[in-house]
Design a protein around this nucleic acid. Structure first.
Lengths: 237, 237
DNA sequence: ATGCTTAGCTTACATCGTAAGCCAATCCGA
DNA sequence: TCGGATTGGCTTACGATGTAAGCTAAGCAT
């Protein structure tokens, strides 16, 4: 009424626009920020709406559901790992260097987003053999490539991927929990129907899918346990 | 009206009573069972009520809130570890034996309750230095006693506790997730105000509380990472 | 008998996710 | 220039949820 037309004049958006228009990316980023500030539990459609100066239902033009919103937020945050110059950079100095960078990158990510990290760590992944927190097909492919091309057998590379995931998950989840993050059941999700993924862009994944799907949890557990005991032995006395 | 008095006659309850009366324990057990069957996401006060043949609000006479209900369920399930004869039994054959039993006991527990385990793993603990999944004061005390009396220094015992927790959490959480359990944010919780706990019964905890509260995540991470890399090196070629 | 206590029920409310439909502003082809 | 189509956000509405408040009937002790 009183306000002279807001979002005025023909110059579309780009200018000083105090209300830059809604779009999926903006929503996801706002969501990530919101969670970091208040914890996932407080992220509701209505609150995120008001945060963006908009009604809750407006979000649904860009986001099909709250579940999908959370998935999107996780993706957005994970994507930072690609922008991390310390991590991205072809494995120049051997696989150990690669794994070190990756581990440190993920730790940095977790510490930078302690509230989002539990989502990264516990939300179902797009395929059952993709394990958090290294939860994108791209990273799995990258991981397997680094190891196999360093002389690991396929099986060994897969085993390494699993061991690496378990290690990161356990340590980082406990570390952010200690920071007071809302680790605890954040939000419940139905086990997802395995969205049959397109592996065209991921040759290694395609080739190793079978092996990746095998259940070797028992052996993995026993081996890691034994190795842990060895390590602890060194602490004795 | 028509029904001739149910829960009849003076013989109080013990008999054939098809409606055995409500009490906290019974509610928690029903809750655990319910979660195991349908996943935590579907556990609502009303549904648990009907499960017990009772209105939702009746539960509140025994349970202050849903949060507390989940806590109780976790406790009930964890308590099974004490009943496990493979685990409980004073550390007869040295600390390694003790840790092996404990690890296997927890794994058994996780596999027996894949839907509850994520709660065990991610719900906030009663003190910040109690780390899931070994999340009861009793177990921490027991753990520290086993190690210190086997010659570990206090610091070493604490370090061992942390390494052990991370190991179990990572491996077991991923293992039950692979079983299709609702790992993903199950239910969100406010970080709990550290309920100042009574440590009178736990002399070691009392003595080591300071050390247990120190933040050594960086070192722990680096050491475990290095050890993991060593282990993976053996897989190469 | 009388009043107290107990255990479960009824009602009510705020908040949530989201389905359905509305409406004004913009865009586009004539 | 215009008039329909499209777009983007809003309004309303519904069922589910956790839980506060108060009720009531059965059993108890006096």
């Amino acid at each position: 009424m009183s306000e002279p037309e807001r979002r005025a004049s023909g110059d579309r958006g780009k200018s000083t626009a105090e209300k830059p228009r809604l779009d999926r990316q903006r929503i996801l980023e706002a969501g990530a920020e919101f969670i970091e500030q208040f914890g996932p539990r407080h992220l509701t459609m209505r609150r995120l709406g008001t945060e963006l100066g908009v009604e809750a239902m407006s979000l649904y033009r860009y986001i099909p559901s709250r579940e999908n919103l959370l998935d999107g937020i996780v993706e957005v945050v994970i994507d930072e790992l690609y922008q991390d110059p310390e991590v991205y950079a072809e494995p120049r100095h051997g696989w150990q260097d690669y794994l070190l960078r990756l581990a440190h990158g993920l730790r940095r990510l977790a510490l930078a987003h302690p509230q989002v990290f539990p989502l990264i760590a516990t939300r179902p992944t797009e395929a059952p053999w993709v394990r958090p927190p290294l939860r994108s097909l791209r990273w799995v492919e990258s991981f397997l490539k680094a190891l196999t091309s360093a002389g690991f057998s396929n099986q060994a590379a897969v085993d390494a991927y699993r061991a690496f995931s378990s290690f990161l998950l356990g340590h980082l989840l406990l570390e952010v929990a200690a920071l007071g993050a809302d680790v605890g059941p954040v939000d419940d999700v139905e086990p997802r129907p395995p969205r049959s993924t397109d592996l065209d862009d991921y040759p290694l994944l395609q080739r190793l899918q079978e092996r990746l799907s095998e259940d070797r949890s028992e052996q993995e557990f026993e081996e890691a346990l034994e190795s842990l005991l060895d390590r602890l032995e060194a602490l004795q006395n």
